[in-house]
């Protein structure tokens, strides 16, 4: 959190230190009698609030898809389809990746907490690579499922169930790509000694959410189709 390089406050003696956020913020309580000294100086970095906001909007998007399925089911019943079995393997992969990411986060937290956050180059990043690899495998597995279906002549327009299948899986995969981008960024920051805890936390929250979302989608597809 404290590593962004700022100009030393030479000409701004009265300017309060800024570290990626204001000084009031989320935990800003009402100062009694207008005394700002009793306000906490720190508020959570924007990334940790921002990620919740982003996740809320993704939740709404997939809620919209879900309700579309339910309403559409009301007009014309969805057709039963068999999901490609590789999806179950993919599920294991994405769950495993969440676990490895959590391992990595613990490790890094322990590392930084030990007061060694001056020397970032030694941050352990092995589990991050494992997570990235598992994430890539997941996307590859999803692609394999699509190719498999395509080989059977099943496309987006085959029937409404497959339409929903493709829309949901592709939309999820695109979001997973966003998560992979975040992981790459975190790894890059580790190497540039510029990693902030909030960045790692936000990325891992997003990644876990993608995992949870996938399990939800799989259940949805499995139940409805």
């Amino acid at each position: 959190m404290a590593t962004t390089v700022h100009e030393p406050p030479k000409i701004e003696p009265r300017r309060l230190p800024i570290e990626g956020s204001g000084n009031g913020g989320w935990r800003n309580l009402v100062p009694a009698g207008g005394d700002p000294r009793r306000v906490k100086d720190s508020s959570p970095p924007p990334a940790s609030t921002g990620i919740w906001v982003a996740l809320a909007s993704i939740t709404m998007t997939f809620a919209a898809f879900t309700s579309a399925m339910i309403v559409r089911q009301g007009t014309a019943p969805l057709v039963h389809i068999t999901l490609p079995p590789i999806l179950y393997l993919n599920t294991l992969l994405i769950i495993a990746s969440s676990i490895t990411l959590e391992l990595s986060r613990k490790q890094i937290a322990a590392f930084m907490g030990a007061g060694r956050d001056k020397d970032h180059s030694a941050i352990p990043s092995r589990w991050l690579y494992v997570t990235l690899f598992l994430g890539l495998l997941f996307v590859a597995g999803q692609t394999f499922a699509w190719i498999q279906l395509k080989a059977q002549g099943i496309g987006l327009a085959t029937n409404i169930s497959y339409s929903f299948f493709y829309v949901l899986t592709v939309a999820h995969a695109l979001h997973v790509f966003g998560g992979l981008g975040g992981l790459v960024r975190v790894i890059g920051k580790v190497h540039n000694s510029a990693l902030r805890r909030s960045t790692l936390d936000a990325t891992s929250r997003y990644w876990h959410f993608m995992g949870g979302l996938w399990v939800y989608l799989l259940l949805l597809l499995w139940m409805k189709l």
Partner: peptide, 8 residues
Amino acid sequence: DMRCKGMS
């Protein structure tokens, strides 16, 4: 998150 000091 970005409110200034004293801005509840």
